[in-house]
Design a protein around this nucleic acid. Structure first.
Lengths: 134, 134
DNA sequence: TCTAAGGTACGATAAAAAACGTACGTTTAG
DNA sequence: CTAAACGTACGTTTTTTATCGTACCTTAGA
């Protein structure tokens, strides 16, 4: 009886652009397309307003967003919880890239330029401890 | 003079399926399509052999894989280095999901079911230290 | 009142990713 | 020798993402 995986295996992770939108909504709360679009535009290159609009409409159809249509300027908000969603993405990433091993992730972090010296130092200590624990 | 980002910013990350193939090649070394396909099949649902074949051929065209055609059973191998490739993916993931903050990643790990009790313990300690360091 | 600015709806397109199926060459067990 | 098993080549199709453009409302202000 081969079954999928009984643990919390994570609803499909939103696509990249979708995450960008969610990110903004989580950070600023319910917003108009215009608002999201402006932030998006300044973060990434110029995008057409209608592209952002369409994206958000699609996301709404998918159930990723919900919107208040009482006013002309619809107010969109994220349906998914930030923590949970990111957690799912993280799990998937871990599985895909590091066979689910947090320790492997750590090791990778150790060689990553995104990691600051301080973080690096503590990471090393951490790995030592993990080795002993094992 | 807005410029991209002079630091190692990461060649485009391979797509999901491509990563799966790379994963197998890194782990088992140069292999035939058949071999990769079998592993792939057992990990994910049933896939048509030719799909895997096509994927690997395409990847070869893209320069992700190279192959030895001296024998009928072509032997494929990964061109990219595992560590580097994963490092790039990690950087991107960090940026997209945790604004590049390793600490945030840690915190997320803390609440992730993929994290074992031992790892959890050390993670907590680590975060304490990071707080002090700041 | 009429118009320009700013909204939404929605069909369309483009490109990337994921999967197939058919045609055809090679090898090997009988 | 020959058929079944196993391989590769490659054109195609299906989805999913990412982006647009055009048509058409709504509202505030000259």
């Amino acid at each position: 009886m081969k079954q999928k995986n009984q643990s919390t295996v994570a609803d499909p992770v939103p696509a990249k652009s979708e995450m960008d939108v969610l990110q903004i909504l989580w950070q600023h709360g319910p917003s108009t397309v215009r608002f999201v679009h402006d932030i998006l535009t300044e973060k990434k290159g110029n995008i057409q307003y209608t592209s952002t609009l369409k994206l958000m409409q699609t996301m709404t159809e998918k159930g990723l967003l919900m919107r208040d249509e009482t006013n002309m300027k619809h107010i969109y908000s994220a349906v998914l919880e930030e923590k949970k969603t990111k957690g799912n993405a993280l799990s998937k990433f871990l599985d895909n890239m590091y066979e689910g091993s947090v320790k492997s992730l750590m090791t990778a972090l150790l060689g990553n330029e995104k990691t600051s010296p301080e973080e690096l130092k503590v990471l090393e200590e951490m790995l030592h401890k993990l080795d002993k624990t094992k």
